[in-house]
Simulated scan of single mutants.
Amino acid sequence: MAVILFDGVCNLCSSSVQFIIQRDPGKVFKFASLQSETGKRYKELFNILASTDSIVLIKDDKVYIESTAALLIASRLKWPWNWFRIFLGIPKPIRDKVYKWIAANRYKWFGRKESCMLPSKEDRDRFI
């Protein structure tokens, strides 16, 4: 099992979670918003900075953030999305610069919610 922590009030992030769920038939991923009690516990347990508002992947007791997290998640999805792992070959500073630019503008471009998303009945078992 792998856990994805995400910004629960970000429209882009919530849409990304739905995208992942639809392309993860093996139910490899579980989810928690960074703002939730579970998200806060995971941040504490894995020594993730409290200020982290980026996507976080916790897999095999290792923490991945930013572009590395996004690309490792994509690598576990159905074809063709798993091919995005080739971008892991790009140096991390370059990948993260692009990731941080998108992250810095995500609320402006995609908006934000007043509260975290609620999963559908079918997907509740994917959230921890």
Rank of each mutant, 00 (worst) to 15 (best):
R95H: 01
R124L: 11
P80Q: 07
D125R: 12
K121Q: 13
R76H: 09
A104D: 11
S75P: 00
C116R: 06
K78F: 02
R124M: 13
R126Y: 04
L88R: 04
I90V: 14
W109H: 06
S115R: 14
R106H: 02
R85N: 04
K121H: 12
I94K: 02
E114P: 00
A104G: 14
A104T: 11
W101Y: 14
W109A: 07
R126F: 02
P93Q: 05
R95F: 02
G89I: 08
W101D: 04
P91T: 00
S120Q: 11
R106E: 02
R76P: 00
A104L: 11
R95C: 06
R85E: 00
F87Q: 07
D125T: 12
S120M: 10
R126T: 03
K113V: 01
S120T: 15
A104W: 07
W81L: 06
D96L: 09
D125E: 15
V98P: 01
P91V: 01
K97Q: 11
P80Y: 05
W81G: 03
P93T: 03
C116I: 14
D96R: 11
C116Q: 06
F84W: 11
D96N: 13
K92N: 08
A104P: 00
N105F: 05
K121V: 15
Y99W: 05
F110Y: 13
R126I: 03
Y107P: 00
W101A: 15
R106A: 03
R124V: 13
F84I: 09
W101C: 08
R124D: 10
M117D: 10
G111E: 07
D123M: 09
P119C: 09
L77F: 06
I102G: 01
R124N: 04
R126C: 02
E122R: 12
Y99R: 05
S115K: 15
W79S: 06
K92H: 04
K78R: 13
N105M: 06
L118N: 14
D123Q: 12
R124W: 04
E122K: 11
K113C: 10
W79T: 04
P119Q: 09
W79N: 01
I86P: 00
L88V: 02
D123I: 08
Y99G: 05
F84A: 15
R106K: 08
Y107E: 03
G111I: 08
S120C: 09
R124F: 09
G89E: 01
R124T: 13
E114C: 00
R76E: 13
I102Y: 02
K113S: 12
W81M: 06
K113H: 14
W81Y: 15
V98Y: 05
R95E: 01
I90T: 08
D125I: 12
R112G: 01
M117E: 11
R124E: 15
E114Y: 01
P93W: 04
P80H: 04
L118H: 15
S120R: 13
R112T: 10
K113M: 09
C116V: 14
I102A: 07
I94R: 03
L77H: 09
K108M: 01
F84D: 02
A104F: 09
K92V: 14
G89R: 09
Y107R: 08
R76F: 00
P119F: 13
K121L: 14
P119L: 11
D123Y: 14
W109I: 12
L118R: 15
Y107T: 05
K92P: 00
R106N: 04
R126Q: 03
W79V: 01
W81C: 02
Y99F: 07
G89W: 11
